[in-house]
Amino acid sequence: MTAVRQSWQVSLRYFRVLLRQPAFLLITIVQPLIWLLLFGALFKAVTQIPGFGGNGSYLDYLTPGIVVMLAVSSAGWTGMGFIEDINSGVMDRLLVTPAWRGAFNVGSVAQCVVSVVLQTLLIIGLALLMGAEIAHAGVLLLVAALLAAAFASLSNGLGVLTRQRESLIGAVSLLLLPLTFLSSALMQLSLAPGWIETVAKFNPVDWAAVAARDPDLLRIGLLAALTVLSGWFATRAFAIYQRSL
């Protein structure tokens, strides 16, 4: 109970930051719309490749892919907040309280998940307006939330361990494109080289993209497990950080 309340109070801090920066809020809203229109236009021809197997419109296929890509890229930057807190001195103040360490991570992850869910709703809305059919909107929201939570925790843990903006920027830049392109987010893997299909089996972004189009419990379960594991890692990171002080 205390843990939930503490996490909620910590998350309020991040929601306020979001609401007090209209520019950031605007970007959060506009970004997914740009992605959908841009990728939609660019990859329109993809579905016409023989063997793609798309029986619906290109948007039906791409919408879940764009959602998972957006979830990972939004979540990747979450750790920036902790790096700022460490440099400013706010983090040390939080760590000398008796509060549960996990609350600091959960509070920050909650803000990321809510942003991603809102962005996903916007994408779904726009895709529907453009005539797409989203067969499993609920599952899409679920996997987007899980993926965002997993990567936000990962980013938080990395931020606390490296304490440097450059390191986190490097890690996100390095991982984002491989994670997206070694998955079926934008492309049917049956058309990709065999090794990519193999690698994708271990890629959480692929789990999310596949599950969103054709819900299966195994992949959703893997995403949930990854979310728990990342959360544990981010919580442990505080202890490792303190050991270095």
Partner: peptide
């Protein structure tokens, strides 16, 4: 604890 650095969240 009142640390040497400011510990208040400047955005709050």
């Amino acid at each position: 604890v009142v640390a040497q650095k400011h510990s208040a969240d400047p955005d709050a």
